[in-house]
Nucleic acid binder design. Structure first.
Lengths: 215, 215
DNA sequence: TCGTTTCCTGACCGTATGGTCAAATCACAG
DNA sequence: CTGTGATTTGACCATACGGTCAGGAAACGA
């Protein structure tokens, strides 16, 4: 029997910590390199250098470059889906869509590299996450479309096409991550300030919420 | 002195035709391969195969992979800028922004590969067209911001932030090219029909024009 | 026809990359 | 301390890639 101290953590050993720590280091470095160079332009050596580990060590934790890339994309998709919760538990478009825009803008700000990896993956035909698109994403989309349609039927917003509205939400929010470099260049070369991010967020919300006749 | 027949075309020779023809073949193939695989993932061999030419022939017309890529990106930027003309000669936001959305949606439909190459370039930090961003694009942006501001001052639309409005226009229209694969997957696997494209266009215009208080 | 320029291309080269492996080191339970 | 399994890593390999080049074919002016 294990002692109570051992039960508190599944595997209390230092070895487990090492594994978790190194996997995390590698994933963080990989996300950045994949975002900056794309899958084809990224090299295991670059990722290894950024993670501060020898290249052979990467292959100990992740058998192939593809496997590592797949993990990075999956982790992003997880974050992406979690933002979807904002849509639920909302009793109208102003709350629901407003919160969703807030959440997705925050993702664009906090995880720009992840957003870029996701965008790059989709742009290149989703070679590794096509199944997610056809299952999880499609189901999620259909569910939200139903919610939006109900709002329309209830007269809480104008009769816009729910599907294309979702595309607009994705596009406008993700743009601040994917095209962050362009935005920063037009912003004078530096990143947006807190105030500018607030302004961006409020602007997107204002135009869209008014655009769908919800305010 | 040249004969009048020779004057009608600058260089009437067959050699000039061959050059133009082959450069066009290569550029078209390169655009597709760069869009599908990214700069790092694209190979000169793939481009050559798609163009139906031996690889060495590519290097005869374009000295390096970078030079070929640069031409592809420049050509897209050209098309992109031409759509800007819609903004001028408009006496209000409904005409100006409406026409701009139409033009950019049409680009997304007709040149999805070019849009992807452009998006990819910017996402990776604009390594080859940074100067364009800092000169041509910035000037264009500043000019349109002034136009929009004038519309706002004239009471033709609500006081939204012109800069962020431009970002919304770019994001929503370009999304249909860059994330075309995702859209097609959610559309049942096939490309949008004429009717669906019209619907997308009208939807974007309706939400944004209403969102800025122009209708 | 002849000389010159442009165009074409198979064969080749140096390098960088993803991945392997065996030996060394370390964590840790008994 | 000792045995066992997890971890680390330098050295290595096969391949694929961007790019070169020499020599031939085709176009063209005279």
């Amino acid at each position: 029997m294990a002692t109570s101290a051992q039960i508190t953590r599944l595997k209390p050993g230092k070895r487990t910590d090492i594994r978790r720590e190194n996997e995390s280091l590698i994933l963080k470095a990989a996300e950045k390199v994949f975002a900056e160079a794309g899958f084809g332009g990224a090299t295991m050596q670059l990722i290894a250098d950024l993670a501060g580990l020898p290249k052979a060590n990467l292959h100990y934790y992740f058998p192939t470059k593809e496997a590592l890339y797949r993990r990075v994309v999956q982790d992003i998709f997880e974050i992406w889906l979690n933002a979807a919760a904002c849509f639920d538990n909302a009793n109208g478009p102003v709350d629901g869509i407003g919160a969703y825009i807030d959440a997705k803008m925050e993702i664009s700000r906090r995880h720009p590299d992840g957003s870029k990896v996701w965008a790059s993956e989709v742009m290149h035909g989703a070679p590794v996450i096509q199944d997610y698109l056809e299952t999880t994403l499609r189901d999620w989309t259909d569910g939200r479309i139903a919610v939006i349609q109900r709002w329309i039927n209830d007269g809480q917003m104008a009769p816009v096409n729910p599907r294309h509205l979702l595309y607009m939400l994705w596009a406008t929010t993700q743009h601040y991550a994917d095209f962050g470099h362009q935005i920063e260049t037009l912003n004078g070369g530096g990143p947006l300030t807190d105030k500018q991010w607030r302004e961006a967020k409020e602007n997107v919300k204002a135009v869209i919420l008014r655009g769908i006749g919800a305010v």
